[in-house]
C-alpha cells in the first residue's frame, strides 16, 4: 500500500455502490413480501433471483478486493476507530456472503426447487425440515442484523463525509486522480 493511494479501485467502488443499491432493495423486498398476500408471488421470484445475483456479486467483489489494494484509513483517526471500521467491514462482507447462502440452503432444506431464469439450481443439501426451521429463522435474523449494521456503517460514512470531512467518504466516491479522465 502506497501513501499516495487515497481511493478504492474502480471495481471495488463500482461493486460497492451497485450492491448497496441492490441490497437495500433486497431487504425491503424480503420484508414486504412476507407481509403481503397480493405481491408475494411476484416479489418472491424477484427475491430469489436478486439474492442469487447478490451472491455472485459479493464473490466478484471479494475477488476484486483481494487483487487490488485498499487505501489506508487517515492517521487522524484514533486506533480504535480504525479497528472498528475494519471489523465492521469484515462483518458486512461476512453477512453479504452468509445471507444469500442461507436463503439457498433454506430452500434446499425445505425440499423446494430453485430455478434461475429457467435454469435448475442444484440443492446444496438434502431436505431436512428441522434444518429448514433453523435456517428460516436465521435468514430473518441475519437480514435485520445486516440492515442494522449497514445503518451504522452509513452513519459513520456520513459523519466522515459531512462532519469530519477527512476524505474517507471520497475514497469510496471518487476515482483516484490518475484514474480520472
Amino acid at each position: 500500500m502506497t501513501d499516495t493511494q487515497q481511493h478504492y479501485s474502480s471495481s471495488v467502488r463500482g461493486l460497492h455502490w451497485l450492491m448497496a443499491f441492490l441490497l437495500f432493495s433486497q431487504i425491503f423486498i424480503g420484508a414486504t413480501m412476507v407481509a403481503r398476500v397480493d405481491s408475494y408471488a411476484i416479489l418472491i421470484v424477484l427475491h430469489k433471483a436478486l439474492g442469487l445475483i447478490l451472491l455472485g456479486l459479493v464473490c466478484l467483489r471479494l475477488g476484486a478486493r483481494l487483487i487490488t489494494t485498499a487505501p489506508a484509513l487517515p492517521s487522524s483517526m484514533p486506533q480504535w476507530q480504525r479497528g472498528a471500521a475494519h471489523g465492521l467491514h469484515g462483518l458486512l462482507y461476512l453477512l453479504m456472503l452468509a445471507q444469500p447462502l442461507c436463503g439457498w440452503l433454506m430452500l434446499s432444506a425445505a425440499g423446494q426447487p430453485l430455478t434461475f431464469w429457467g435454469w435448475v439450481v442444484p440443492s446444496l443439501i438434502s431436505a431436512d425440515s428441522g434444518l429448514y426451521v433453523l435456517l428460516r429463522a436465521l435468514h430473518g435474523l441475519l437480514a435485520y442484523l445486516l440492515f442494522a449494521l449497514v445503518l451504522l456503517h452509513v452513519g459513520a460514512a456520513l459523519v466522515h463525509g459531512l462532519i469530519r470531512r477527512d476524505g474517507v467518504l471520497e475514497r469510496m466516491l471518487k476515482a483516484a486522480p490518475s484514474e480520472s479522465k
Binding site: 420484508a31 414486504t32 407481509a35 403481503r36 398476500v37 440492515f147 452509513v154
Partner: peptide
C-alpha cells in the same frame, strides 16, 4: 436519515399498512 430508513423498513414489514389481511 438513518431513523427514517429504519422506520421505512418497519413500515415495509407491515406491508405498508395495507388494509388487506397479512399471511
Amino acid at each position: 436519515l438513518l431513523g427514517s430508513t429504519a422506520l421505512a423498513l418497519v413500515w415495509a414489514a407491515h406491508g405498508f399498512n395495507s388494509s388487506q389481511a397479512s399471511p
